[in-house]
Design a protein around this nucleic acid. Sequence first.
DNA 1: CGCCTATTTGAAAACCGTCAAAGTATGTGG
DNA 2: CCACATACTTTGACGGTTTTCAAATAGGCG
Lengths: 226, 226
Amino acid sequence: MISTKKTDLLKRTDIFASLDSKELEGLAHLAVERRFAPDEFIFWEGQPAHWFYIVQEGQVKVSKYSPSGREFIVAFFTPGEMFGEVAVFQGKPYPASACAVGETRVVGIRRDDFLSFLATHPSVSLKIIHVLGERLRSAHTRLRDLAAERAEGRLANILLMLASKLGPTLPFTRQELADMTGLTPETTIRVMSRFRDRKIVRSGRGKTTILDEAALRRIGEGLPLN
Amino acid sequence: MISTKKTDLLKRTDIFASLDSKELEGLAHLAVERRFAPDEFIFWEGQPAHWFYIVQEGQVKVSKYSPSGREFIVAFFTPGEMFGEVAVFQGKPYPASACAVGETRVVGIRRDDFLSFLATHPSVSLKIIHVLGERLRSAHTRLRDLAAERAEGRLANILLMLASKLGPTLPFTRQELADMTGLTPETTIRVMSRFRDRKIVRSGRGKTTILDEAALRRIGEGLPLN
DNA sequence: CGCCTATTTGAAAACCGTCAAAGTATGTGG
DNA sequence: CCACATACTTTGACGGTTTTCAAATAGGCG
């Protein structure tokens, strides 16, 4: 075993989990570990995409910035998830920036290595299609949300989406919630305060706990805050 | 040749274009032609997804509806493009509804047939990854747009996106533009009127012609309507 | 010509963003 | 252990944008 830790990580990903240990070994040889300090960027939107990554430890935030400099958070990724893969497949620049949240380790795989690996492992392609499909579905749901719901509904839906992935206690600041919903921090705070007064959430500094998921679901469906 | 028309269509799609004529023949056997009248639905959000489709003639509008009944248009598809594929891969219900715009013909392929075809044609998987990646990229760009831009910017960006696909003359009503941007028809009309006064677009009933693409691009970047 | 639908316009109200200022947790260095 | 600096959070007032509601106009098709 040359790199137990790397094969262990690969084994925990959706797309590589079904490979046998020999194949995993081969991949692990191609994978390079990298560490990032909090708030350090892994890549920037517009850079040429030679690598794609898998989160090993910590969290990665993928965002797009508007010309005015405002941030919009596209997704958070946790250990075992890949990111930067869309650009790699297309040979185009990264469509968004990736930034480490807290101390973070990732493994990177070179575009060329990965494409040749794919050519000989068709089953992995199917897994990737599955993952991309899931992300597309989520993106479309969020699109409908941003287009149709107002502040309360948007926040409710983002909280639900995050909770379904991370559990009922969410490690985000108001600012980050604002950047995910396209609201300002002030509006986010006001809505969250209403939620708190209604005992729908409990909140502290950089942390939110969901108490009444059913209520959030009603609000997310466009029903009034009753 | 059993079905020249169907193989011709398949030949024009991104994902099947590189197959040889024997493979195309095989696929064409699996493909079923269907016709739809204007405003007839091909499938509804939530239905089990046994088929995916390719547009042969006409246009298909894919939308999601908010609980209040408001429509949000996720995408328009033109001949040669596929839709409904995400649900098929995942064995989950369709995540959106598809509706014929004008007299429309499509070909449908059964989920099971397609999955077994894929298993024996890995190169098609790669094409699909490519298409899904492109759609994901577009969805994320639109997300940032809805979150960060106001009415003028949103409309400008949607017009640009449509023009890059359909050319400078766009066959959409104000209502449809509103459903793509998440604005109300009234706001859409007011903004479009400003655009018309500035000679940025020319517009008629159910039709819009872009005159000054550069201006739209400036507005879409968040710059004022100068 | 008449109907249906798309477009247009107006006025009022709701919502959210902006700006400004103050309060409060967390961590750091002395 | 305390003082202080640094975020994050909170609150208020104001203004602008967009929605809402209502009504009128105009284009296309039978």
